[in-house]
């Protein structure tokens, strides 16, 4: 359902992505790993429309989406979370999620009142298990809660595909379990297709059914977790940096 075709992204002189091709089927749970600076976030940025690819295409449900503005891509059904959470600090926790419910999908849209959007937002807060006062402001939240809010907001757009960028970084052990559990639940209960960028390997490897590895902007491995973790090029890519 999501097909990345030969995508290249150049920043100034830096090749952040070099001819990356990837097909992701409906309902799959894919881990995307690679050393720092290997282009994982850049790939998410291209797919979600933050910027267009320098070369190549992104096809979603048979339609080319590369070059579309991010709000259109979101409404097509691709949501993302940010590696550095981006809560809107002058909106309440509930309102942050309401952004997703109101603007993120064509079904609800801006025509419906704020009340219905709020109701639905509260359900998503419940879904991710965020137990904060929904009327509080997200300015002094823990890392774990920020991640939950980030995910609730993305899921609230009712996506078909969720691009989750490092939802575990900076979390303690309990929070790790919570956050990864949300992804699992989103896949199982909502039927989302998930691509998950993560450095916390031991958690990722247990959950995903397929792992794709980037190194220096190139796709160097693609397979099930067991075989990828034995892949020589992958080991070298990680060891080579440390």
């Amino acid at each position: 359902m999501l097909e990345i075709q030969n995508v290249t992204k150049v920043f100034g002189g830096i090749l952040a992505l070099t001819g990356v091709s990837l097909k992701v089927g409906e309902g799959s749970f894919v881990g995307l790993i690679g050393p720092n600076g290997s282009g994982k976030t850049t790939l998410f940025n291209v797919v979600s429309g933050a910027f267009p690819p320098s070369k190549g295409n992104v096809i979603f449900n048979g339609q080319a989406i590369s070059g579309m503005p991010p709000n259109h891509i979101c409404r097509q059904g691709i949501a993302r979370t940010f590696q550095i959470p981006q809560p809107i600090k002058s909106l309440t926790v509930a309102e942050n999620v309401m952004l997703g419910t109101i603007f993120g999908s064509q079904q609800i849209g801006t025509a419906c009142g704020l009340d219905r959007a709020r109701e639905e937002a509260l359900q998503w807060l419940d879904f991710v298990g965020l137990k904060l006062d929904p009327e509080s402001y997200p300015d002094r939240m823990t890392a774990g809660d920020l991640r939950k809010l980030e995910m609730a907001r993305a899921i609230a757009t009712r996506p078909k595909v969720l691009l989750a960028d490092e939802v575990l970084s900076g979390l303690n052990r309990d929070e790790l379990k919570d956050a990864s559990g949300i992804l699992q639940k989103a896949r199982d209960e909502l039927g989302l297709t998930i691509i998950w960028v993560e450095h916390v390997m031991h958690v990722l490897m247990k959950l995903v059914e397929r792992v794709v590895v980037l190194n220096y902007g190139m796709l160097i491995a693609d397979g099930d977790p067991a075989s990828v973790s034995k892949d020589e090029r992958v080991i070298e890519a990680y060891l080579g940096r440390h």
């Binding site: 709000n71 981006q86 993120g104």
Partner: peptide, 12 residues
């Protein structure tokens, strides 16, 4: 606060 965050949630 963040144009990119807003846009990624579907806001034009």
């Amino acid at each position: 606060e963040s144009e990119i965050a807003a846009a990624s949630l579907g806001v034009s």
